Simulated assay, not measured.
Amino acid sequence: MPLVAAALLISSCDTGKEAADGTSPEVAASADPAAEEAAIRVKIAQWLDLIKAKDAAAIAQMYAEDGAFMPPNAPIGKGRAAIEQNWAAMMGAPGFDLTFAPEQIIVASSGDMALDRGTYRLVVAPEGTEQIDTGKYVVVWRKVDGDWKAAADIINSDLPAGGG
């Protein structure tokens, strides 16, 4: 009987398998959360630069292929094409300016997922009158082929319903 138990234990510890992103479980288990958080912060800085450039196509590439963008007062964008359309529409508003900053980034011990929670400030000027919205956001990051991609991105305004 001990031989059967040993065989079951060995077969349940198959270390030859690779994770979905191509890393072995040993690599994922030894992830450096501080280094992964720093890598996500670099992605956030790139994202902010793309917003300033109003490059919706490049912003869409920041998302996983099956990612989702959930902006306020608009339909969910599922997949990069829809995400690009949502960002283009939002950035096309007159006077558009958006900044955001993470308040907390938590990297999973596996090193393949992370939670980014922060705040944003959005300015638009329809009809020449500046309107300012502030709020909070959550981005769930997923490591895809060694690169951090936004899997889910949701924005929530601090303004009362009706915008005022």
Rank of each mutant, 00 (worst) to 15 (best):
A93N: 08
P94T: 07
P94G: 10
F96Y: 12
F96P: 09
D97G: 11
D97A: 14
L98M: 13
L98H: 11
L98K: 03
T99F: 01
T99N: 12
F100S: 11
F100C: 13
A101N: 14
E103K: 12
E103S: 08
Q104R: 15
Q104G: 05
Q104L: 13
I105E: 00
I105R: 08
I105T: 08
I106A: 13
I106Y: 05
V107W: 09
V107I: 11
A108C: 11
S109C: 07
S109W: 04
S110L: 11
D112N: 14
D112W: 05
D112T: 12
M113P: 02
M113H: 13
A114I: 04
L115V: 06
D116Y: 00
R117I: 14
R117Y: 00
G118K: 10
G118D: 04
G118Y: 02
G118F: 10
T119C: 01
R121E: 14
L122N: 03
L122H: 04
V123P: 05
V124Y: 02
V124E: 05
A125I: 07
A125R: 07
P126Q: 04
P126A: 06
E127D: 14
G128H: 08
G128Y: 00
G128L: 01
T129H: 10
T129Q: 15
T129A: 13
Q131Y: 08
I132T: 15
I132D: 00
I132V: 13
D133C: 06
T134G: 01
T134C: 01
G135M: 01
G135A: 03
K136D: 01
K136L: 01
K136P: 03
K136I: 09
Y137M: 05
Y137I: 03
V138H: 01
V138M: 12
V138C: 10
V139H: 02
V139K: 10
V139A: 09
V140I: 15
W141E: 06
W141T: 01
R142M: 00
K143R: 15
V144K: 06
V144R: 05
V144F: 05
G146T: 06
G146E: 03
D147P: 02
D147R: 12
W148P: 01
W148R: 02
W148M: 04
W148D: 03
W148Y: 05
K149R: 11
A150S: 10
A150Y: 00
A150M: 11
